[in-house]
Design a binder for these strands. Structure first.
Length: 467
RNA sequence: GGCGGCAUAGCCAAGUGGCUAAGGCAGGAGCCUGCAAAGCUCUGAUCCCCGGUUCGAAUCCGGGUGCCGCCUCCA
């Protein structure tokens, strides 16, 4: 089966042809670890988690690297107001990031390089750029990349123009050869946030770390370092433009064969920001909503589109995901059989079309309806039940949803005392029903409703769910 | 100022030249049920506006209008 991916540099949906047959190499620009992860980080991580899962389902051996930028101006600023070391501070946020992403079902990357642990690769690349005069050092020790040395500069973002007016906001520095030149290395004096390297005392610029890490981690071929380079839409310029330029000048090849960018998350139609006070940290969202639900909600929209996060839509997603778990609950404790091949292929096919998760979810919904219908007609068909459970298992492999215990799913946040009380009330109601005392049965149901508990009388007894 | 994206039923959202425009939520009708809930069945849009290309366009081109993003750290 062919895999198609929208390349945001070529602006076209292309058939994926990996550098090495049946192997796929992916690099994702990860977070700068100076604060907790927000919904935007989640969306990025989820997009490329789906990419990895889909390629694996198609039979590729996937290697995904996601970096942590653990040295940067904002980290240094934060350090000034804390009594932690650089490593303590960044490791704290790395752990927080991984914890939050784990709650969303994001698989760990195969390689997780840190900038501070890649100084050797960075200084090596900077040295080569200096030797070939693609980079130059100015009086204060800063090292800049000379964008005029890269004839293809601008080919990634299509953002570079000759018009001087457009670049008025770029850092003014009289020693820079070209206004667009960017820092590869920032000289500094403070020892606690600087590294002693062959290119001087200082710290790496943001862009060089990705180029250097990719060179260090992946082999590539004579034309490309990796198959797919991923990141948020905002990274296209200047970050990815600069990465591409550095790699071209240092290695004489392109950094990536395909470029994939995910769209932004807005909250209630407004850009996320601390000043707006819209709760945008993942940890806050996870206090209220289940991680799997957030995952399901966030992947319900194509990864390239902007995403407008709001509670109404989130609760709609909850109802939709509940249907999957209700089906799973219907088959509770049953054996998992063989997945339906047609279902599996249709689902992979949807994801193979530029990760069309919306379509994949529609296919899941159709499977749920058809499965419920079949179960209504043939409640004792064991083979059918086993196949449906296998289908649900495959949904989890590909989309990362539906793996939880179906009973627990509907009882999240209910204490064991409340559970006992609910069971007791249901028992009393069953007795009242048996005696045809419907008034009493209904009043017990009202009592449960007041506790936010919904009940449903099924063939095999009364089941309850937390609303 | 420069570059780019988006606009599909009450809401969310697939679909990028051609069968009756996916799917979900909400709403309506029915089956089932002591009544409900759950589940199942049926039910809704000609695709922001104008013009063009074409036998044929939501889908391509041009022009509007509106919203958003990037150009400075940012997923």
């Amino acid at each position: 089966m062919s895999f198609y991916l929208y390349d945001s540099v070529k602006k076209d949906k292309l058939e994926f042809k990996s550098i090495k047959e049946n192997e796929a190499t992916i690099y994702v620009c990860g977070p700068t670890v100076y604060d907790d992860a927000h919904l935007g980080h989640a969306r990025s991580a989820l997009s490329f988690d789906m990419l990895k899962r889909t390629l694996k389902a198609l039979g590729y051996k996937v290697t995904l690297a996601k970096n942590f930028t653990d040295i940067d101006d904002k980290i240094i600023n934060k350090l000034a107001n804390s009594n932690k070391t650089l490593e303590e501070l960044t490791q704290y946020y790395i752990d927080r990031y991984l914890e939050d992403m784990s709650a969303l079902g994001v698989e760990r990357a195969d390689v997780e390089p840190k900038a501070t642990e890649s100084i050797d690769a960075i200084e090596s690349m900077i040295n080569r750029l200096l030797e070939s005069d693609c980079a130059y050092k100015i009086d204060n020790g800063d090292i800049y990349f000379d964008t005029s040395k890269d004839s293809k500069y601008g080919s990634i973002s299509h953002m570079v123009t000759e018009d001087e007016q457009n670049i008025s906001r770029i850092e003014a520095n009289s020693q820079k050869r070209n206004p667009k030149d960017f820092a590869l290395w920032k000289a500094c004096e403070q020892k606690d946030v600087c590294f002693n390297s062959k290119v001087g005392m200082g710290r790496p610029g943001w862009h060089i770390e990705c180029s250097a890490m990719i060179e260090k981690i992946f082999e590539g071929d004579e034309n490309y370092c990796i198959d797919i380079h991923c990141g948020g839409a905002d990274l296209l310029f200047p970050h990815h433009e600069n990465e591409a330029a550095q790699t071209r000048c240092a290695l004489n090849k392109e950094i990536a064969k395909y470029w994939v960018h995910n769209g932004f998350v807005q909250i209630d139609g407004e850009k996320m920001s601390k000043s707006l006070g819209n709760s945008f940290f993942l940890k806050d969202a996870l206090k209220i909503y289940d991680g799997e639900l957030l995952r399901y909600y966030l992947i319900s929209v194509n990864y390239r589109n902007d995403f407008n996060f709001n509670e109404v839509d989130l609760l709609n997603s909850k109802k939709r995901l509940d249907k999957l778990y209700r089906l799973k609950k219907r088959l509770y404790g049953g054996k998992v059989g063989q997945v339906n091949k047609e279902f599996k292929n249709t689902l992979i096919e949807a994801m193979s079309d530029d990760l069309n998760s919306s379509k994949a979810m529609a296919i899941v919904d159709e499977m749920i309806t058809s499965a419920n219908d079949s179960l209504d007609k043939e409640p004792k068909n064991r083979a059918l039940k086993q196949e449906i459970l296998a289908n649900i298992k495959f949904i989890n492999e590909l989309l990362g949803i539906g793996a939880k215990d179906a009973i627990e799913w509907f009882q999240q946040g209910v204490s064991s005392e409340d559970k006992a009380k609910i069971e007791e009330l249901i028992e009393q109601r069953a007795q009242a029903k048996k005696e045809k005392n419907f008034a009493k049965a209904d009043s017990i149901r009202d009592e449960l409703t007041a506790m936010n508990i919904a009940i449903m009388d099924l063939a095999d007894g009364t089941k309850w769910e937390k609303l």
